[in-house]
């Protein structure tokens, strides 16, 4: 390509950064600080899990999705979540949760465009009115072992998406999940159960044998995405682990 557009793009490659790049040592220091913060957050989450297990062994909810609400709903969670920064996904889903395997974090894209997993169901219509209330989103995916070829993934991938909303708006977003599934893709997806974890939860079955669990704890929402074939109970179990860590 040798056209004016190509020349403009070439010039853009040399665009100066607004400030000098940080030194490699400064970047490594920032990485170490992140590791320390993550360790503290994980420790807090483990304590929260222990406390939750000690308090209750009773499944929450009735097994059916709750009624549609028209406005923000206050959280039933007793305490604010420790996951207050967008580094949450690695805390919520860990390789040890997935069973034996040579788990490797992947850089796979979970979705493009609007920062809502369910948006693609509703072509031309985002399907949610709450996205502007989303404060941050974090994702992580694990694959069992290295990718076998540069042209595709043949090994199962487990993912989780964690979102935080402004106070009260996560509940409304979960309502939007149910609505998007029912309105935009009733032939491919179906809400099959709910109320199995967190303040609210929804289990969605995709055509075939894939399940997706969405669980809300306070203002946080985790969308748990095991690979096809792992079944309903495994997905629910993973969602309960996620809910405990969000608490």
């Amino acid at each position: 390509m040798s056209d004016p557009l190509h020349e403009m793009l070439r010039e853009l490659r040399n665009a100066p950064a607004p400030a000098a790049f940080a030194s490699p040592a400064a970047v490594r220091r920032r990485g170490r600080q992140r590791s320390q913060r993550a360790a503290v957050a994980a420790g807090t989450a483990v304590l929260a899990v222990g406390a939750a297990v000690g308090v209750t062994m009773v499944p929450s909810g009735t097994g059916r999705p709750g009624p549609v609400s028209s406005g923000p709903v206050a959280s039933r969670s007793a305490a604010p979540s420790p996951l207050t920064s967008p580094d949450a996904a690695a805390v919520v889903l860990r390789p040890a949760d997935l069973g034996p395997g040579d788990w490797e974090e992947t850089g796979a894209e979970l979705f493009n465009g609007p920062l809502w997993f369910w948006a693609y169901l509703c072509a031309g219509d985002l399907g949610t009115s709450t996205l502007e209330r989303q404060l941050w989103l974090d994702t992580i995916s694990y694959r069992d072992g290295p990718r076998p070829s540069p042209f595709g993934d043949t090994k199962p991938v487990y993912s989780v998406i964690v979102e935080r909303y402004e106070p009260g708006w996560a509940a409304r977003n979960l309502t939007d999940v149910r609505a998007a599934v029912n309105r935009c893709a009733p032939d491919e997806f179906a809400v099959v159960s709910g109320g199995f974890a967190g303040d609210e939860s929804v289990l969605v079955r995709q055509h075939g044998d894939r399940y997706v669990a969405v669980v809300r704890v306070g203002d946080l929402i985790a969308t748990v995405l095991p690979p096809p074939g792992r079944g309903e109970q495994f997905t629910i179990g993973l969602a309960r682990v996620a809910a405990d860590r969000l608490s």
Partner: peptide, 30 residues
């Protein structure tokens, strides 16, 4: 620099792009 340019083109915000690049490299070091 290559990543900065790409992020800058995607976001339209040079400062945000540079910080995202720094943060991504920090995560890579982890």
């Amino acid at each position: 620099q290559r990543l900065f340019v790409a992020l800058c083109a995607l976001t339209g915000d040079a400062g945000e792009a540079q910080d995202a690049v720094h943060e991504a490299f920090a995560r890579a070091w982890q």
